[in-house]
């Protein structure tokens, strides 16, 4: 993780003048006496993460904390900068949606060493001695169920494409492996292309456009999240193949639920970001109250 660039940009004189206030987007309701909680979200361009961040902020505020939301923009370096800010500014706890399962570990450990507990939301880090708790959906089981539905809808045969999420996110691989644990048992279901679109709507659109040129006769596309499903569907509409190709997503985002009701996207798997966020906020409150049992 390269933190030198941030350090190089940080003017010397500013160090002598500050401590830092919240930066990177979002609102705060700070007063000097109230303990502060930081909500650090991987990418607020994704509506699902906006729900996660808003729910965390709302619950933490209800519990009596001043809350600032930070956007890491899927950049581990930006996330590191947020942690620098949080540690220096005396935040009591961090509700973190990590950018990378390995890349975020050092940030969480730094916070822990500084006495700032971290509670991971939706995504995990590959360390069990850093965060106080990690709350995530059972993505594998969700995609086992989705895979079973996929097989049924496809009639056990056909060509499909898979669009993966961020390769540094364990959720990407849990979803893919859960899906393939079912679908790969059916030899007449053939994956003709698999590509990462980083959970991005725009990248999924571009990937789908490109893939369709080489594979114009596909029957389905499985996307590792709903944002990519929307992007892929838009590409299919543009290619006039939306009636021919079944689209499957994951998240249960409002826009995809609406699309399913309209007969466009075929299916998604529901997640509950508000429950995850609320649980993280309540865990932080319990921890700050002295509770240490989070197993």
């Amino acid at each position: 993780m390269n933190r030198v660039s941030f350090r190089a940009l940080f003017p010397l004189l500013l160090f002598l003048l500050i401590p830092l206030t919240g930066c990177g987007g979002g609102s705060s309701t700070a007063t000097d006496e109230t303990p502060k909680i930081a909500v650090i979200i991987s990418n607020l361009n994704n509506p699902w993460f906006v729900v996660l961040g808003d729910a965390a902020k709302e619950r933490a505020s209800e519990l009596g904390y001043d809350v600032v939301v930070f956007d890491s923009q899927d950049d581990s370096a930006k996330e590191a900068a947020h942690f620098d800010n949080v540690i220096a500014s005396g935040y009591a706890a961090v509700l973190l949606n990590p950018t990378d399962a390995d890349g975020s570990i050092a940030n969480v450990r730094r916070a822990k060493e500084a006495g700032v507990p971290v509670f991971c939301m939706d995504r995990e880090i590959n360390a069990t001695d850093a965060a106080v708790s990690q709350i995530l959906s059972d993505n594998y089981s969700g995609c086992v169920a989705l895979g079973q539905y996929f097989v049924k809808q496809m009639g056990e045969s056909g060509k499909y494409v898979e669009l993966l999420g961020l390769v540094g996110d364990n959720n990407t691989w849990n979803r893919s492996k859960g899906f393939h644990s079912v679908v790969d048992r059916y030899p007449d279901l053939k994956m003709v292309a698999q590509q990462s679109a980083d959970f991005s709507r725009e990248k999924a659109f571009d990937a789908m456009e490109t893939i369709l040129q080489a594979n114009p006769d596909i029957d389905a596309v499985f996307c590792g999240n709903d944002t990519m499903a929307m992007g892929a569907h838009r590409a299919l509409v543009a290619a006039e193949k939306d009636q021919q190709v079944k689209v499957f997503g994951f998240d249960g985002a409002d826009e995809v639920v609406k699309s399913i009701a309209e007969g466009k996207i075929l299916a998604t798997a529901m997640q509950f970001p508000k429950l995850i966020a609320r649980t993280a906020a309540e865990s932080a409150d319990r921890y700050l109250d002295g509770d240490r049992d989070f197993r």
């Binding site: 940080f10 010397l12 069990t128």
Partner: peptide, 23 residues
């Protein structure tokens, strides 16, 4: 100022062997 900055924001961190092994 530079020394203080680098003290508070070091350019690298040493991790214990346990942490590296866990990864």
């Amino acid at each position: 100022g530079t020394a203080a900055l680098l003290y508070c924001f070091p350019l690298f961190h040493v991790v214990s062997l346990d942490q590296a092994e866990q990864s």
